[in-house]
Design a protein around this nucleic acid. Structure first.
Lengths: 114, 114
DNA sequence: CCGGATCCTATCGGATACTG
DNA sequence: CAGTATCCGATAGGATCCGG
């Protein structure tokens, strides 16, 4: 399973890596995606699911995720107005990366402790 | 290939994701790993391989990568002194993530352009 | 409930100069 | 060659308060 590192990464490849990094980096984006996936679709629910995130950050990050087409925001015109966030089909393409990050983070704990 | 997102990520999982993110984030770390993999083992070589990185940044990031056991620094006591950086076996466990990031970054270009 | 607006601080990272 | 040291601007992100 541990594939080897790419030995001949091109300059293009490096750009792609940076792009990806840019989209997922920051303290919260990945956690927000995970929280929505877990069934938290309302603003308050997401916030409750992620310890210590502030409304400012959640609001900001949700907007960026929307711009990157990873999250959809739907407004249902009831009263009081109901807003629902969901991950896009495209967002599922993150699956492999997230699973890898969980696996790797777990491993890393053991390694660095030594 | 596009695995689905994890539906039941635990709080533990979230911690692991944050840890991984912490290790790889920043503008340069991944590029430095790729550069070393491509056969650039000396400080100057790595710097040449990565456009616009400053000595300050390269120095700082290499130290962190060493602390995280992703890179090894060897000193050969010739004169002038020769220093060689290499990726650890452990670093290869990044393979899957990096490949995924390249793939995903490439895809993302197309999506966002639309 | 769903955020926006302000203010503040810490860290990130660039530029430049200098050292063994 | 392989870095260190300093200075500085930009940005990330926290705290708090406010409004529809």
């Amino acid at each position: 399973m541990p594939r080897t590192l790419p030995k001949h990464a091109t300059a293009e490849d490096m750009k792609y890596v940076q792009d990806t990094l840019y989209v997922i980096s920051g303290k919260w984006k990945m956690l927000i995606i995970l929280a929505i996936c877990a069934g938290n679709n309302r603003f308050k629910d997401i916030q409750r699911a992620i310890p210590r995130i502030t409304t400012r950050m959640l609001s900001k990050e949700l907007k960026e995720l929307e711009q990157n087409k990873l999250v959809t925001r739907r407004v249902y015109d009831e009263s009081p107005v109901l807003i629902e966030y969901s991950t896009t089909a495209y967002c599922k393409s993150f699956g492999a990366i997230i699973h890898e990050m969980i696996r790797w983070g777990k491993e890393h704990r053991k390694i660095v402790k030594k």
